[in-house]
Amino acid sequence: MRSVPSLVFLTVAALASVFPLYFMVVSATNTSQDVLGSRLLPGGQLVENLNKLLAAQDLGAAMWNSTLNAVGTTALSLLVCSIAGYGFEVFHSRNKDRLMGVLLLAMMIPFAATMIPLFRMFADFGLTSTTIAVILPAISVPFIILLFRQAARSFPHEIVEAARIDGLRELGIFLRIFIPTMRSTYAAAAVVIFMTAWNNFLWPKVILINEAFQTMPMLISNLTSGYVTDYGVLMLAVLLTSLPTMVLFLVLQRAFAQGITGAIK
């Protein structure tokens, strides 16, 4: 497995993975005409494209909305899912296992099916066009709970015992010992949640009736909705939309890998 063929294979895989991203970056610096002509060299159009984008769309607002949604979702989801995962493991019981099984069923529900009832529910509470309506359905994710439950398995139970003897309350143990110890699991979960939340499209599009709440994926879709599309501007928007998730992954990738590793011990 460590021969030349495997290195060639790895190189091909890596190039295939990165090439479309390269095309995206290069296209952001080209004119619409060049993008449609599959030009693969960088052009001098970046500033022009940015100016056009800023003139056409409220980029700042969309970035802020997306950030607010994604950060809000990530923070709440980490809290809710990790405390649940911890609870499932540290207070393990047969009935809790059963509950986990039931919760996992939620992974199998197609979103398109629940969208209308969900919308009706939020509308009944007057919560359309609110950040909370975007975030709330995305907080409790069975997969993330599972991830934390598995990670909690490697959390030394002696520590819990010792902390209890020291008189720490259960929540204190979770907040002061579990969270700091499990930083890499949190990083891994944060990457997954943030990416999903940032790229979420269908639900925000339905629930955010007021376009002042427009998110980055919605902004991209706006750019393609007219009779004339400027593909250079579009690719720039696409690049800007992808940057935060890519940067987050690059920053957290070591912790991410560790976190996933820790979770499946």
């Binding site: 911890y86 809790k96 209308i116 529910m121 709330l136 259960e170």
Partner: peptide, 23 residues
């Protein structure tokens, strides 16, 4: 332990299972 599970379970109930039942 159950209280720790409560927010997550409740959210899944309200945001996933209830709409699915309505569906």
């Amino acid at each position: 332990g159950w209280v720790f599970l409560l927010p997550a379970a409740l959210l899944i109930l309200v945001m996933n299972f209830w709409p699915m039942f309505q569906a």
